[in-house]
């Protein structure tokens, strides 16, 4: 996913899909799937059977057809697309929270970042992109199986050189001592983040930043209270993304006759609904219109940021 791991993998007009590549098979904006290209393999979906061998040699972004004539698009993976297709082992973070976390934690190439828990690796993938090529993400999950699955995913998406997954109960044990004073930023997604804060203080470089993600306000209140002794700039945000639906539509332009008199117009009969309506003229113009989708995520979680006080 990160061109950094192999310069040849960089997206370009000449870069073609190869055996072993990870592609995002795009059916619709709400229906995508990650597939490892494997000569001889096939993908079967409601549009028919797609031979992987047909894909090899095509550019990313190509439309490919099934035996039945159905089609899908093959896209190059990005952290954003990956977030839409990964398998949910836990609740995951989505793009609005992810992008805000990365900017607010001031993560740039070369940074060392600690994360707990790894969860489904949705944020981890974006963290890896942000610190590449020379930085590193150390991510921890107490759940052994989950950590193993995450490791597999990071192999698959090609970010394993930039991410190390550890199994550890950060709330109970804190981060490993070897990272003391080495972390530029720390991200916590834990049910009791306040338990991990003393360890975070040790891990962060001076002036480093921590972020804690929590769905409930009580967690925020308690974490903020704990942060106050050693941190400054303690700020809590909530971010949501509102999406819009676009349609090309017609709007009836309604007109009442100036005279307003009943039955004065010998106008043509139209559809049943407006039959007997002598005062109405209907003209239509096609316009592109957008409105917010009413189905929206109402809340994901609160993001609390704090910066280690500089006391030296």
């Amino acid at each position: 996913m990160l061109p950094v791991e192999s310069a040849k993998k960089k997206l370009s007009f000449t870069r073609c899909i190869q055996d072993g590549d990870l592609v995002i098979v795009y059916e619709r904006y709400d229906n995508m799937k990650a597939v490892k290209v494997c000569e001889g393999s096939v993908l079967e979906n409601r549009f028919g059977v797609f031979k992987h061998s047909d894909w090899i040699g095509k550019q990313f972004g190509s439309k490919v057809f099934s035996s039945k004539g159905g089609f899908v698009y093959l896209l190059a993976p990005t952290p954003e697309l990956w977030t839409l297709v990964l398998s949910h082992r836990t609740q995951i973070l989505y793009i609005a929270d992810i992008s805000f976390v990365i900017m607010f934690l001031e993560i740039v190439p070369g940074c060392v970042v600690l994360e707990s828990g790894t969860g489904s690796g949705s944020l981890t993938t974006s963290l890896a992109r942000a610190v590449a090529p020379e930085g590193h993400v150390y991510t921890f999950d107490f759940h052994e199986q989950r950590a193993a699955s995450a490791r597999e995913d990071f192999e698959k998406t090609g970010i394993s050189n930039t991410v190390t997954v550890g199994v550890r109960d950060i709330q109970g044990e804190g981060f490993p001592d070897e990272f003391s004073g080495r972390a530029d930023s720390v991200f916590l997604d834990l049910p009791q983040p306040w338990l991990a804060i003393p360890s975070v203080e040790k891990m962060l470089k001076q002036d480093g930043i921590v972020c804690s993600f929590s769905p409930c306000i009580e967690q925020v209140q308690r974490a903020s209270e704990t942060l106050r002794s050693k941190f400054t700039d303690i700020r809590t945000f909530e971010i949501l993304l509102r999406t819009y639906e676009v349609r090309e539509g017609k709007m009836d332009s309604f007109q009442v006759e100036e005279s307003g008199s009943v039955g004065s117009l010998p106008c043509k009969r139209r559809q049943r609904l407006s039959e007997g309506s002598n005062e109405q003229e209907t003209t239509s113009a096609s316009v592109v219109m957008a409105r917010p989708c009413s189905e929206a995520k109402g809340h994901t979680g609160y993001l609390t940021f704090a910066r280690l006080k500089c006391l030296s």
Partner: peptide, 20 residues
């Protein structure tokens, strides 16, 4: 408009809302 779940230790805006 936003509705909240107010429960001890579990207070937060409702996760699903009519957004428009």
């Amino acid at each position: 408009l936003r509705e909240y779940q107010v429960l001890p230790s579990r207070t937060h805006p409702c996760m699903q809302m009519n957004g428009f």
